[in-house]
């Protein structure tokens, strides 16, 4: 059992899981409370466009994804309408356009593109050391930013109108939160893939919200749960040879079901 930890791919997988869990715990609670889950899904899918172009250019797809997701987040931040229904439409367009760009560039790139499945569905067991390093830098940026801007982010998530009345830079904070969401998504894509990113941003937070009603506690519990879910999914995937991204998400979903179910049972018994 322990000797599998001596494989470098296993060490990388564990590191990737831990880093993904940290950004999920720091950003996920904001995304859930601000109802930005659909935005995150949209941003995640625009990454596919960047992956496709990077693949066509012959550079590391992760760099392409990073640039694309950041651009999409900035665009969304600057165009953000006060009316959420218009936002909704715009996110849908970004989502589909990103994927379409990806498909086109992959199509015009000669040869077969096996890596792309990895980016769609994630494979934590094949994350190279170089990408771990990129992730580490992204995690540092996200962590420091959340620590520095924590009060401001809480203010806009709790009551944007009030934050405006207190003369806080609400627009800048909103754009900042979107950019950090983008960086988190890039970190997560390696672990669970574009399609399953929103699962890691939401499931640990959903479980943590059942266990605590305090925002800071929810952040910490989400990080710990994220690590638990990623590692459990990783071992399931390793031993029974299931796709790793899907294993992680299913472990998370099952855990959420167990926690919610036991809470309901306890309520009924009392």
């Amino acid at each position: 059992m322990l000797n599998i930890l001596s494989y470098e791919f296993m060490q990388n997988a564990i590191l990737a899981g831990i880093m993904a869990s940290i950004v999920c715990g720091l950003i996920g609670p904001f995304i859930v409370s601000k109802k930005m889950v659909f935005i995150s899904g949209g941003l995640s899918h625009t990454a596919f466009g960047g992956l496709g172009i990077a693949y066509w250019l012959g550079i590391n797809p992760l760099y392409g994804a990073t640039v694309f997701v950041l651009l999409a987040a900035a665009l969304l931040g600057f165009l953000k309408e006060d009316r959420t229904d218009k936002n909704d439409l715009f996110i849908g367009v970004l989502w589909a356009t990103g994927v379409a760009i990806g498909i086109v560039f992959i199509h015009i790139t000669p040869g077969y593109a096996p890596d792309l499945m990895t980016f769609l569905f994630g494979n934590i067991l094949t994350v190279p050391r170089s990408d771990i390093f990129v992730s580490f830098i992204l995690v540092m940026i996200v962590t420091l930013s959340v620590l520095i801007f924590f009060k401001g982010f809480v203010a806009i998530a709790l009551d944007e109108e009030y934050a405006k009345a207190r003369k806080l830079p609400v627009r800048a904070l909103n754009i900042g939160l979107l950019l950090l969401t983008a960086l988190s998504i890039v970190t997560l894509i390696q672990v669970v893939g574009i399609i399953l990113v929103i699962a890691l941003l939401t499931i640990p937070v959903a479980i943590a919200s059942e266990l605590s009603a305090n925002f800071k506690q929810i952040m910490v519990i989400s990080i710990l749960l994220g690590i638990l879910i990623c590692l459990a999914g990783l071992f399931v995937s390793y031993f029974i040879e299931f796709p790793s991204g899907a294993s992680i998400v299913l472990v998370g979903g099952a855990l959420l079901g167990i926690v919610k179910g036991s809470k309901k049972l306890l309520e009924i018994r009392n």
Partner: peptide, 21 residues
């Protein structure tokens, strides 16, 4: 008008009144 989704205690909510630019 505020976001009832946001998990926060009374004390922390009132504290946000001390936040300024």
């Amino acid at each position: 008008t505020f976001n009832k989704n946001f998990p926060i205690t009374s004390l922390d909510m009132v504290l946000t009144g001390r936040i300024s630019s």
